[in-house]
């Protein structure tokens, strides 16, 4: 009974906002226990909520960017432009090199050789075809002559 009296007094002070933090913690402890006086029961929800609410955490990271000075971005963009200009300048000198590299990665030399042979065969035959087509042209000339003469 002694303790209930004390709690009632503390509650009164609490509602007038004149309790110290230590006294408020005493109240929290009392209402967290199992033997709360029935007529004070409804306060336990309040004090227990305060303890639980303190446990809520923010889940986001602290938004801090690395880099010491403010000019970090400016320097980074200057560097980016320099790299880009460098790339464009040297890139135009030997445009075939990246393709060669690509080929070398995917195929063996033998494969490339046989591919080259196949292509030369194809071009030779294509030439023959074109030569043949010139005969056709001759033929067309003579037929036209016949038609015109008629």
């Amino acid at each position: 009974m002694e303790s209930v009296n004390r709690i009632e007094k503390l509650l009164e002070k609490y509602l007038e906002a004149t309790t110290t933090l230590a006294e408020e913690n005493e109240l929290k402890e009392y209402f967290a226990s199992d033997d709360v006086a029935p007529h004070l029961q409804h306060y336990s929800m309040m004090f227990n909520y305060f303890s639980v609410a303190k446990e809520e955490r923010s889940t986001r990271e602290i938004p801090v960017k690395p880099g010491k000075n403010r000019y970090y971005l400016a320097w980074a963009s200057i560097a980016a432009v320099a790299v880009l200009a460098f790339g464009v300048y040297f890139g135009s000198e030997e445009p075939s090199s990246p393709y060669e590299k690509l080929f070398a990665q995917g195929y063996t030399e033998e494969e490339i050789e046989s591919a080259q042979m196949a292509i030369s065969l194809f071009t030779n035959n294509f030439k023959k075809g074109v030569e043949g087509a010139s005969y056709l042209e001759e033929f067309e000339k003579s037929t036209n002559r016949f038609i015109l003469n008629n």
Binding site: Y14, L15, E16, A17, H42, Y43, M45
Partner: peptide
Amino acid sequence: RVTLSRARKAVRDELTKTH
């Protein structure tokens, strides 16, 4: 203190009502 006292009493009243 006045604001805190009002807030605490308001919560108490609300809880008493529900109780």
